[in-house]
């Protein structure tokens, strides 16, 4: 009797397919279709004037992009913005995590306040920081006048606009970093701090030998995450500086937007967006090769 009953249970594969396949198909479509379409565009010269026309031009766009001085400028802006954003976000995140890790009253309230910047939108952050940093409305101006220096302080200028963007971006990302680091900090047994005290470690030594080691893999992962987020960031820059003044803050994302939507040079924009994708993936891979692999092994 029982022998005749074949098991009614599904195998892992059957069950996984049943649950995940439709979604995976959707996901692959929404990843594969835009990528495929963008690839097609990047290999064609598309024109709208005098009727829609698409002419195959091979890798010409890619060659043009590589030789384009504006592209190189944007690449540099992106790299500088990303480096500053990531460094700031990681340091701010770590400091916030260390502060939150202290026992204190109203911890829930403090943490609720601290996570706010991450919860609000990037365009909101853009508006907020443009009011904070521009000369007409900025806090710099207000402070300067309060101190008797009667001069508008505008930091959204050619020299400092990238730093303003980086601070705003870091302000938005740091809470996420902080909360995950905080979760790691909480797993450090307090006995280890007692041990460090017995060994008469200084504060710095304690930080380096007790606090930091368990955080290292998380730091790596969030360095990757914040790098990717910074490189693909668009709306925040669009709202805060619009790529300006001039092209001082025209990151690759902004340049792609401009080529594609303003100048309607779709093939060129698409070729550039592959460069950006290559930059994002390349940087992550390099980070993994130089840092992540070592951390993953040490766990």
């Amino acid at each position: 009797m029982r022998a005749a009953q074949r098991t009614a249970e599904l195998s892992n594969l059957q069950f996984s397919l049943l649950l995940a396949l439709p979604v995976l198909v959707f996901l692959l479509l929404v990843v594969a279709y835009p990528l495929g379409y963008a690839l097609w565009m990047s290999l064609h010269e598309i024109s709208f004037f005098g009727g829609y026309k698409a002419v195959f031009v091979g890798v010409e766009h890619f060659a043009d992009v590589i030789g384009d001085r504006k592209f190189k400028k944007s690449l540099w802006v992106t790299v500088r913005f990303t480096l500053e954003s990531v460094a700031l976000a990681m340091v701010a995140g770590l400091l916030i995590a260390l502060v939150l890790n202290r026992k204190m009253r109203f911890a829930g309230l403090v943490r609720t306040i601290v996570i706010l910047p991450w919860c609000i939108s990037l365009y909101g952050t853009g508006v907020i920081f443009s009011y904070l940093a521009k000369g007409q409305t900025g806090i710099g101006t207000a402070i300067a006048y309060a101190l008797g220096i009667e001069e508008a302080v505008n930091v959204v200028n050619k020299q400092w606009v990238i730093e303003v963007l980086a601070v705003g971006n870091a302000w938005n990302m740091a809470p996420l970093v902080a909360f995950f680091l905080l979760a790691n900090l909480k797993t450090i047994p307090s006995r280890l701090y007692d041990l460090a005290a017995i060994d008469r470690m200084s504060r710095l030594e304690t930080f380096l030998n007790v606090t930091l080691p368990p955080l290292r893999f998380t730091l790596f992962v969030f360095t990757c995450i914040t790098t990717v987020l910074s490189m693909k960031l668009f709306d925040f820059i669009f709202v805060l500086s619009g790529g300006g003044p001039g092209t001082a803050s025209a990151t690759l994302t902004y340049r792609i937007y401009k080529e594609s939507f303003k100048d309607l040079d779709l093939g060129y924009g698409a070729a550039m967006s592959f460069m950006l994708l290559a930059l994002i993936l390349g940087t992550t891979l390099i980070l993994y090769g130089l840092w992540g692999r070592r951390e993953a092994r040490s766990i």
Binding site: M1, R2, A3, Q5, R6, T7, A8, E9
Partner: peptide, 15 residues
């Protein structure tokens, strides 16, 4: 086998 019946293919619950 449970009591000489082959249950190799039966689910845990059937057993």
């Amino acid at each position: 086998l449970f009591d000489d019946e082959d249950v190799t293919a039966a689910s845990p619950h059937q057993r």
